[in-house]
Every structure is written in structure tokens, then in C-alpha cells.
Design a protein around this nucleic acid. Structure first.
Length: 580
RNA sequence: GCCGGCGUAGCUCAGGGGUAGAGCAGCGCUUUCGUAAAGCGCGGGUCGGGGGUUCGAAUCCCUUCGCCGGCUCCA
């Protein structure tokens, strides 16, 4: 597997080295905190961590002490020694380490391996680097609480995160990538570009969309609606509150009560704010008898829902308590399911491409332990999803047991410009609601048949999708989405009349244009347009006014020189049509 | 929700038991300018809220709300 000729570190070598770094970190913690108890210390995508139970909580200063102690160990160049021992011997070795004892009990073989380096011994499968000098440049990055074995009912340990690389250059590159991600953070960009805000006075997880953010959202929504109409969806609207009984029928009151807001009393009846749109679409479907000839019926809505999310889970626009789903429900016959899924996948891919996402991962989640419906119906639907994925030649992975209780699903995760994954389109087959609400159609045999229902979103929610887009583009939206597409910058006040005339011509075609008519210097105006990531800057002075042109500057610093107004317009329109 | 950190002007942040500062933004005046920040001046904060300790609290303690990093959760 490992090629001897290759000078480059293999990924598995990196992993092994990071794992060794975790051990060295544990050794440092042990020497600084003699009473420490040890959890686990695995490698993760960008580094490693180790969980500890310590007599006191760690401070950032501890991190530098641990770091210093680690450097000593590495300089000492102690070998990593592997030893195979019986479980019984291991139990004695780790007699004062309850977490290790728990791990030992769960290991299948009678023999277990331990690794020693310096003064530290750990239960570990390995492998490790030969000696501590094999550990490359590292950095301890953060301290956090983490439940033992990820179980919130078990003790919370202190976790130290770190990362290590083969070379200092790799480490530096990684740290720069982290910085770049921070620069693109949608919470920061959203503030800088005046797109949205969240305020304590309003409430956590409740979003205020500012005019510029609202423009982007409107462009997305208009595009979304057009595309859905083209593809045979019908747009509907539904109320924001409904009788509690509705949610008892749907099962949400029972299954997801934790996520629902408390009922309010309206003339003696309990109502709740909606956590989902599906029951409403079901009633639209059920508003009259449906013939098999009418199916499939596809009802779509940008539906705003409210769900209680635990306070620690909220995150900018990516995790909120009130959000607008780009929701749709497809009611179809079982024999139509596969085609419908193919169409949904096609729409999802179309949307992803439109918004500049080239790469994505597709996951098929199958039947979990607790499920509604019968085994046969699950098998049938899972097969329909599978066949649809194959027919649309979509490479996918199976995520066994990760389906929702009411049906299997296909999730698409988007890869953004920095290679990070975001939850994207999702398609779920539902066996539960058609039964609970008795959703039927009249078949060719003039008998009632149960409908097959598909829930799907292609963007997720407007809020989360906005967060994804902001970080993907780093705020430099393509022209069709940019809240301000062009800023016209007069060099002196005497150019204002001409500038306004140009602005009028441009906005008449629908271009979003602003005139920067402040009594400021052109340099400042250019700088601000640049900072605001406006795609086109049109500088206008004596020359332009005389020639009836504008001087075009792009946000990538390119100066394209003078253009006739029409010439600029067709350029801008071409970019908009191409959604670039 | 849990562990830890942090809340000082619109924003970014300094200060820290004796009564609050900077830069940017804002406002006013001057400047009318050729591709990333003109100059001068002015205004602005119950130091997140509540309670306590103290002669005195932005500063120390408690509590509460919010944010951040994780964990857990995410129909």
C-alpha cells in the first residue's frame, strides 16, 4: 500500500502521526495533572483530540504549558513501544482509569495492545510513528467540553483539539485555510455587507433580513418559483398556525413535541405555530376526490416554519428557530415514484449548478430500527430511490439505518469553495402521513388506493441556503444575485446629471444600480464599492461624459476602460443570463 | 440543554475598585478630485439586565439573558 518510492507523506502516515501526537499530548497532560483520567484520543479530519477528566478546568494558559511539555517529549525522541497483553493484565495496568476499563471490557479479543512512550502508557490499537521525533509541526487549537462517548447522560470530559502536519508549510497552509474560512463566515460577511441581523431583543434564532439580503432572497425565490412552475409544480400558501389537533393527527405532537412551541389558546381551542408545511398540503390534496389520472400532484410552497432548537445549537443563519423551507410535497401512485424521484434529483442538480456548486455527495439513508409502514413497502421505496439514483447516474453512498422513521431518503451534501460540506437538497418518501391522514386517490379500478407521498426541498431553507451561498462566494455574489450590481461613481459633482441619466438607462433594464453621489473622493467610493463586492464599478468623469461612455472597473481590480453604455449593458445582461 | 470562554459607542477593540478611551462609522465645515481610505471639528456609552459586597463597582461575587468554541440534537 505504501509506496517506498513516494517522497510525499501518505494520508495514512499523517493520520498515524497525528495519533501519536495525541499520545504525546496525553503524556503532557498526565505530567501536568497527575490525577488525570483518560478518555479517548483519536484523529479527526484536520487533526486530533484527546478527552480528559481533570481535577480542574483547563484555561488557555494551560494549553501553552501542555504545548511546551509536548515539545520536550518530542525533543527527547522517545520510541513508541508496542506491547500485547491479556485483558486481565490491561485491567491491572489501567486500574485507576475507569474510562479505559470500560473500553477494555468492550474489546472483542482476549489480547489487547498498549503503546508506551516516555512516561505514558495507553490502550491503543496503533499504529504509531517509530519515535516522538516522527511527529511533525503541531499546534494545539482549542479546548471544549465533550460527553464521554458522546452521550449527554454521561460525564462531560475536557477535550483538547490539536493538529499536526508533515511539514511546517502544510501546517501554515492549513492555518491559512482556517483564517480564510473565518473571513468568509456568513455571520461576519452578513454584517459587513448589511445582509441580515439577529438581535437579542427579537430573540435568538430569529432572523431580520435587511434590504440587501432580502434582494438576494427575492432573486432566489423568483428563480425557484419559475423553475418549479416549469417543472409541473403548483404553488400554494398555508397558514402559520393551526389547531393542535392537526399536529396530533400528524404525529408531530407525539414524536417531536420537544421541537414544538407551546400551544396558544384561541377561543378555547389550542393552536400551535407550524413546525412543518406537510399537513396543509395534504389537506389541499384532500380538498376533493382525486383520480389516478390527476397524479402526480406536486404542491410547492416557500413555507415559514418555527421549531424550538436548543440554545447551544443555534448558529447564525445556518441553524435558526424560524425559517422558510423551499418545501414541496409530491402525491403520486406507487408506479410513479421512481420517475418522480428522478425528476427531483434532476431539479436538485439543476439548482446546485445554478448556484455554482460543482461538487456534492449523495447519501441514501435506509430503514432505521424504529419505522412506520411495512418491510415490503420500505423495500419498494428504497428500491425506487436506488433505481432513480442509478437512472440519473448519480454516484451515491448508502447510509444504513439513517432514514427517518417514516421513510427512506436521499440527502445531497454540497461542497463549497473551501471544500466544506453543507446540507443541501433532501428527498424523503413518507409512508406515515398518507396513512394518518388517510390520503387516497381513486384508481382505474374505481377503488380507493393509498397515495405515495414525497417530501423534498432543493435548497433546504432560505436561511441556511443563504449562509451556504455567502460562505461559498465569500460575499462576492455572481452578478445575477448581487444586491447591487453596479455602482456609478462620478468623479466630480458636475458629472451628476450625466451619471443620473446613465443610471436611469441602466435601471430601466432592471439592473440594480446605485449612484454614489456623496461629496467624497472617487478613491473612497471605489474602495467602498470594492469592499462591498459590487461586481461593476462605472467611473464617470469629463472624458466619459463627452464620449457618452462609462469606464468599467471590476471587483477583481480589472480596469476594462471606457465602454459605451449599451455595450456595458449587454455585457452585464449576458452575465446575468449566464448566472455568472 | 451541557462544558468552557466572552458581553465596554453603530462596528472592531483597549482599560480595569475612585466614576470611561481609541480607530472606523455618523454629523458639520473645507476640498470637486481619474481607479482601494482627503483635512479639520463635533456628537455619541445607565460598560448586556438584575441583585449583592464596598465609603465607592464597568472592574469583585451571585444570578439572568445573549454571543462564541465544542458536545449532544437537527422531522
Amino acid at each position: 500500500m505504501t509506496s517506498k518510492a513516494s517522497p510525499r507523506a501518505q494520508p495514512e502516515d499523517l493520520d498515524c502521526m497525528r495519533h501519536s501526537a495525541a499520545h504525546v499530548m496525553a503524556e503532557a497532560v498526565q505530567s501536568l495533572f497527575p490525577g488525570a483520567r483518560f478518555g479517548i484520543g483519536p484523529t479527526i479530519e484536520d487533526g486530533f483530540y484527546y478527552d480528559f477528566e481533570l481535577p480542574r478546568t483547563l484555561t488557555p494558559e494551560d494549553l501553552s504549558a501542555i504545548d511546551a511539555r509536548m515539545r520536550q517529549s518530542i525533543a527527547a525522541n522517545s520510541p513508541f513501544l508496542r506491547e500485547e497483553v491479556t485483558k486481565e493484565a490491561a485491567r491491572q495496568l489501567f486500574a485507576s482509569q475507569p474510562y479505559k476499563l470500560e473500553l477494555i471490557d468492550e474489546l472483542p479479543d482476549e489480547k489487547v495492545t498498549v503503546y508506551r512512550q516516555g512516561s505514558f502508557t495507553d490502550l491503543c490499537r496503533g499504529p504509531h510513528v517509530a519515535s516522538t521525533k516522527g511527529i511533525g509541526p503541531f499546534k494545539l487549537t482549542s479546548i471544549a467540553g465533550a460527553y464521554w462517548r458522546g452521550d449527554e447522560h454521561r460525564p462531560m470530559l475536557q477535550r483538547i483539539y490539536g493538529t499536526a502536519f508533515a511539514t511546517g508549510k502544510d501546517l501554515e497552509e492549513y492555518l491559512q485555510k482556517v483564517e480564510e474560512a473565518a473571513r468568509r463566515d456568513h455571520r461576519r460577511v452578513g454584517k459587513d455587507l448589511d445582509l441580515f441581523s439577529l438581535r437579542e431583543e427579537v430573540g435568538p434564532g430569529l432572523v431580520l433580513w435587511h434590504p440587501k439580503g432580502a434582494i438576494i432572497r427575492r432573486v432566489i425565490e423568483d428563480f425557484w418559483k419559475q423553475e418549479h412552475m416549469k417543472r409541473g409544480y403548483q404553488l400554494v400558501y398555508s397558514p402559520h398556525i393551526a389547531r393542535l389537533d392537526l399536529w396530533k393527527t400528524s404525529g408531530h405532537w407525539e414524536m417531536y413535541r420537544e421541537s414544538l412551541y407551546s400551544p396558544m389558546d384561541v377561543e378555547g381551542q389550542d393552536y400551535i405555530v407550524k413546525p412543518m408545511n406537510c399537513p396543509f398540503h395534504i389537506f389541499i390534496f384532500k380538498s376533493h376526490l382525486r383520480s389516478y389520472r390527476e397524479l402526480p400532484i406536486r404542491l410547492a410552497e416557500l413555507g415559514t416554519v418555527y421549531r424550538y432548537e436548543r440554545s447551544g445549537t443555534l448558529h447564525g443563519l445556518a441553524r435558526v428557530r424560524g425559517f422558510t423551507q423551499d418545501d414541496a410535497h409530491i402525491f403520486c401512485r406507487p408506479d410513479q415514484l421512481q420517475n418522480e424521484i428522478v425528476a427531483v434529483l434532476d431539479l436538485a442538480k439543476f439548482m446546485m449548478k445554478a448556484f455554482g456548486f460543482q461538487d456534492y455527495e449523495v447519501l441514501l439513508s435506509t430503514r432505521p430500527e424504529k419505522y412506520a409502514g411495512t418491510l415490503e413497502i420500505w423495500a419498494e421505496a428504497t428500491e425506487a430511490l436506488q433505481k432513480a439514483l442509478e437512472r440519473s447516474s448519480t454516484p451515491y453512498q448508502v447510509d444504513p439505518g439513517e432514514g427517518v422513521f417514516y421513510g427512506p431518503k436521499v440527502d445531497i451534501k454540497l461542497k463549497d469553495a473551501l471544500g466544506r460540506l453543507w446540507q443541501g437538497p433532501t428527498t424523503q418518501v413518507d409512508f406515515n402521513l398518507p396513512q394518518r391522514f388517510d390520503v387516497n386517490f381513486i384508481g382505474e379500478d374505481s377503488k380507493e388506493h393509498r397515495v405515495v407521498m414525497v417530501h423534498r426541498t432543493v435548497l433546504g431553507s432560505m436561511e441556511r441556503f443563504m449562509a451556504t451561498l455567502v460562505e461559498h462566494y465569500g460575499g462576492a455574489f455572481p452578478v445575477w444575485l448581487a444586491p447591487v450590481q453596479a455602482v456609478i461613481i462620478p468623479i466630480a459633482d458636475r458629472h451628476l446629471d450625466y451619471v443620473r441619466e446613465v443610471a436611469g438607462r441602466l435601471s430601466a433594464t432592471g439592473l440594480r444600480v446605485e449612484v454614489d453621489d456623496r461629496t467624497e473622493r472617487m478613491n473612497l467610493k471605489i474602495r467602498e464599492a470594492q469592499v462591498n463586492k459590487v461586481p461593476y464599478m462605472l467611473v464617470v468623469g469629463d472624458k466619459e461624459q463627452a464620449a457618452g461612455t462609462v469606464s468599467l472597473r471590476l471587483r477583481n481590480n480589472q480596469d476594462l476602460g471606457q465602454k459605451m453604455v449599451d455595450e456595458f449593458l449587454s455585457m452585464a445582461n449576458a452575465a446575468i443570463v449566464a448566472r455568472s
